[in-house]
Design a protein around this nucleic acid. Structure first.
Ligand SMILES: [Mn+2]
Ligand SMILES: [Mn+2]
Ligand SMILES: [Mn+2]
Ligand SMILES: [Mn+2]
Lengths: 218, 218
DNA sequence: CTTATTTTTTAGATTAGACTAAAAATAAAT
DNA sequence: ATTTATTTTTAGTCTAATCTAAAAAATAAG
């Protein structure tokens, strides 16, 4: 399995949540930041290897093997991100690019030992679940902040957008995973929100509140 | 710089110790486990990028840049080997293949933080020196065991052959780096040696004694 | 100083992965 | 139901890295 093949599998895996009846060639090309013709080529190769099911013009679907392999790569990505934040002095906005490289290292023992070394973490620095050794992903119950009503609150447990820009914004305003948050007011004009995070009160724009996951605590 | 280019640079770097007046194409091909024609191709590419100096039929020599880059890769290789042994539960005969992959990860911060995390180690698990951040390699004074006279002794500090087979042999006979060793007798017929390692006495063949580095302590 | 051997380079093919441009299939709009 | 627009695939080119087979250069032998 080449690095490029693994990246395509991962892309298709993530896109399957949005495109349940087959992932279109264009969507894959866009996700991979390449051209549709290149995506078609790779789709054929992956299909040839029975990693995806594919009929021309019908979009791609991961097979059992394809999905299992994608999950393995995602497991490695998230374990490495955890390593970089927990053991080295990386912040959560710096880990993605490096993990994109590390996720392709091939060694069963390495990933097993890394997992042990980290104390079998359940989530990565962005709150995303780390698949276990058998590929099982323990889905975490979470709500987008913007769905909360005034008076409701909970704990920040993840980000939907994990771009460096968003993560840095959160750092700047002292919003981190594990912090408690409560909705004090909602502004219907622009969907902004007044919230209390820890001891601070602040106003969050719609763009922010639609990208922060909360575990509701009544 | 591609992965393949880095591996060729590393190969040439190591071969330059043996071939001081230019590394022959065949030597490179053999080291890289490839064909001479492939080596010629790569030599041209590296030469084009001014990483090696090359005139047809004259062999290859690393330029300043080429050498510096090779050293960086070696630094990463040895730091990763140290990580695998010191932090994860790898033994010294299991780390090389994984480090061959990890050494190509591109991130200045990663290698800097890893070095810090490991406590700025001076040598890798095989006793080889880890180049510092500036590419300086602190050569360690060491003698091949077979050169010692009867009565001389010292401390095991490195291996010349770091094949898994040799390392496992050493493990089996409880010879590890840091252990003291003393020559009790030499057999001129087959150049075998009677030595005391720790509390044990044992006979080492010529093949063993010519692949173990000792720091002499009088 | 020729001839033979070894070493190195060239020529031509192959594979993975990407691209551009054009054709073909599907979907959307009159 | 045609026409128009979008999506997808095909055809052909390119680069890095490899290979085999053959030619050319350098070395060694007689
Ligand atoms: Mn990531
Ligand atoms: Mn993540
Ligand atoms: Mn090694
Ligand atoms: Mn080593």
């Amino acid at each position: 399995m080449t690095l490029s093949e693994e990246n395509y599998l991962k892309a298709i895996f993530h896109l399957e949540k949005k495109y349940t009846k087959g992932v279109p060639t264009n969507a894959i090309a866009e996700e991979m930041d390449t051209k549709a013709s290149s995506a078609t080529d790779m789709i054929k190769r992956l299909s040839e290897k029975d990693l995806i099911a594919y009929k021309p013009y019908q979009g791609a679907k991961l097979t059992k093997e394809g999905s299992a392999h994608a999950v393995k790569v995602i497991r490695k990505h998230r374990l490495w991100e955890s390593f970089l934040v927990d053991k080295l002095d990386f912040s959560w906005d710096e880990v993605h690019e490096v993990a994109e490289q590390l996720e392709h290292i091939k060694s069963e023992k390495l990933i097993k030992e890394l997992d042990k070394f980290l104390g079998y973490p359940k989530t990565d620095p962005h709150g995303d679940p780390i698949p276990d050794e058998n590929g099982k992903i323990h889905r975490i119950e979470k709500t987008i902040l913007s769905k909360l009503e005034v008076g409701q609150g909970g704990v920040c447990i993840g980000v939907k957008d994990s771009s460096s820009a968003f993560l840095k914004y959160l750092d700047k305003h002292h919003i981190s995973l594990g912090k408690s948050i409560k909705v004090l007011g909602k502004e219907s004009f622009d969907n902004s929100m007044l919230v209390k995070v820890g001891e601070d009160e602040l106003t969050l724009s719609s763009l922010v509140s639609t990208n922060l996951y909360i575990k509701i605590v009544k």
